[in-house]
Write a protein that binds this DNA or RNA. Structure first.
Length: 184
DNA sequence: CCCTGATTCGC
DNA sequence: GCGAATCAGG
């Protein structure tokens, strides 16, 4: 991917807005966060000062001995930083009663028993990663819309609480399976 | 571990 | 100039 004027401009904008390098890389697409950071430096854009992130590196001179360069197993060229920030179809976000659920079961009626409602981190779309809860909160058309953002342990798109909301079984077939397994 | 930015240096 | 590898820190 080339650093076209447009892309550079967008980079500058997002960087000045305080987005992290990885987030910017995700938005630009086709570049790694390293590429973004490298470009930022080349452009002599102001670093993150000492803002929380990482303080200025003093006088580090590791000289780095390894650097076999060719040691890289040539994974695959441009790592698009993973399919981060999954675009969710609007219909999926809505969850309104007027959505045609067809064969799907109606959501929510259950007590859901335990599972404590987590405190939403109120993440925006671009803040989502592969391990943050992507449960939408609020009206997508309104300003306060955000995502849960809690830990989504185990590759699930949702946190424990929202996973229960999302995957409420029609009936507990696990018991039957477990019973069958135990009977063997 | 996850993440952040910073730096080096082969290309 | 580019960016992966690496470092350093939260």
């Amino acid at each position: 991917m080339n650093w076209t004027d447009e892309r550079v401009e967008k980079l500058k904008k997002l960087w000045s807005e305080g987005l992290s390098a990885s987030q910017i890389a995700a938005q630009l697409g086709g570049v790694s966060r390293n590429a973004v950071i490298g470009k930022v430096h080349r452009l002599c854009l102001p670093g993150r000062a000492k803002a929380g992130g990482t303080a200025a590196a003093p006088a580090r001179t590791p000289k780095r001995q390894p650097a076999p360069a060719a040691a890289r197993p040539a994974n695959y060229p441009a790592r698009p930083t993973a399919p981060r920030a999954i675009a969710r179809p609007a219909g999926n976000v809505a969850l309104s009663e007027d959505v045609d659920l067809d064969g799907l079961e109606q959501v929510a009626p259950m007590p859901v028993s335990s599972a404590v409602l987590p405190i939403s981190k109120r993440l925006s779309l671009t803040d989502l990663t592969e391990r943050t809860c992507k449960w939408p909160v609020g009206d997508p058309m309104k300003e306060d819309f955000h995502f849960c953002g809690c830990d989504s342990t185990e590759g699930s798109p949702y946190c424990a609480y929202h996973a229960k909301l999302a995957y409420q079984p029609v009936n507990d077939r696990r018991r039957a399976a477990a019973a069958a397994a135990a009977a063997r």
